[in-house]
Simulated scan of single mutants.
Amino acid sequence: MQEIEFQLRGEFVELNQLLKLTGVCDSGGAGKALVAEGVVSVDGQVELRKTAKIHAGQVVTLGDVLIQVLG
């Protein structure tokens, strides 16, 4: 499993933007498509809200990629 640490710069980052900023996908639109497909989980639960607010301490998984969000 590939693990990525993402340093949060504000209070939160939108889920589709997190996927783009970490290089998991090429664009925010591609991130939205992945979320809509139901293949992205936040803290172990499938997340279908494309612009869900992701905060420090949360873990996002997509396939074999795990993203740790640091504060």
Rank of each mutant, 00 (worst) to 15 (best):
Q2W: 04
I4W: 02
E5P: 00
F6R: 04
F6E: 04
F6A: 02
L8R: 04
R9F: 00
G10F: 05
G10I: 01
E11T: 13
E11D: 15
F12T: 13
F12K: 07
F12C: 11
F12S: 14
V13C: 10
V13E: 14
L15I: 03
L15G: 11
N16F: 09
L18H: 08
L18K: 08
L18Y: 10
L19G: 02
L19Y: 01
K20W: 01
T22G: 04
G23F: 00
G23H: 00
G23D: 02
C25A: 01
C25M: 01
C25Y: 05
C25H: 04
S27P: 08
G28S: 06
G28Y: 04
G28C: 06
G29P: 13
A30L: 10
K32W: 06
K32V: 02
A33C: 00
L34C: 05
V35H: 02
V35F: 02
A36T: 09
E37T: 08
E37W: 00
G38T: 06
G38L: 02
G38Y: 03
G38H: 07
V39Y: 05
V39Q: 14
V40W: 03
V40P: 12
V42D: 06
D43C: 12
D43A: 09
Q45P: 02
Q45R: 15
Q45F: 10
Q45E: 15
V46I: 15
V46D: 08
E47G: 08
L48P: 03
L48Q: 09
T51R: 13
K53A: 11
I54A: 04
I54R: 05
I54D: 03
H55Q: 12
H55V: 11
H55N: 10
A56K: 14
A56R: 14
G57W: 01
G57R: 08
Q58A: 09
Q58L: 08
V59G: 07
T61R: 15
T61Y: 02
D64S: 13
D64Q: 12
V65R: 11
V65A: 07
L66Y: 10
L66E: 14
I67C: 07
I67Q: 08
V69F: 12
G71R: 13
G71L: 03
